[in-house]
Amino acid sequence: MPTPPVGQSLALAAGYVIVGFVGLVGLIIIWRIWQEKININMLISEPNGDASMSRLQLLIFTVVIAMSLFLVIIGGPHGPAFPATIPDQILTLLGISGTSYLVSKGIQFSDPAGLKKAVPALVVTPATFAQATPADTQVFTAAAANAAPGAPAPPLQWSLEAPALGSLTPLPPDRVRYNPPSGPVSAMEKTVTLRVTSPGFEDAVVKITLA
């Protein structure tokens, strides 16, 4: 049996080393993502915590073209082979997507509000309430925004700011009912402020306009 040339053996050995190294790195990355040691929660998010369409588009095209390239390589008519050319259309597609992402970042940097880091905050719905009749009550619901994924619901503390006209009936875990004052109120005290607080979260404030 003839022995292969030294160069051929070296190429084969190098191939095994590269395949082993790339495979090991890839599997470690996937394993660490599953272990939550690599956090991909903000994979397509902006600094302010909002998800970004241009990042999502770039991600989708990257994955789709990588998978297509792989399918083409393994499905070659004469065994696995890298395609001779990459069509201009594909390069243009990635170019449009990448340029859109960069322009989008430029627009975002032009607006200081788009760069503010997202902080955990409470959000109350409805955000305002105007009584139609003096006897109207209203139920408010609080939710945590920008909280860590999987974090438990924060404990809520509801209060009325001075002059604390009316009263509150807590409806755990996340709601409260506002009961208006029984007697008449002066024209100067038609606005009541409802506040909800929780440690580690920005307060939420609701303006209630009495009838």
Binding site: V19, V22, G23, G26, I29, I30, I33, V63, M67, I74
Partner: peptide
């Protein structure tokens, strides 16, 4: 054969994970 299954595992694994 090894390279083919490695790419299937890595690209597919990442796609499934995401």
């Amino acid at each position: 054969w090894l390279a083919k299954w490695e790419v299937i595992l890595i690209v597919g694994g990442l796609a499934v994970t995401i």
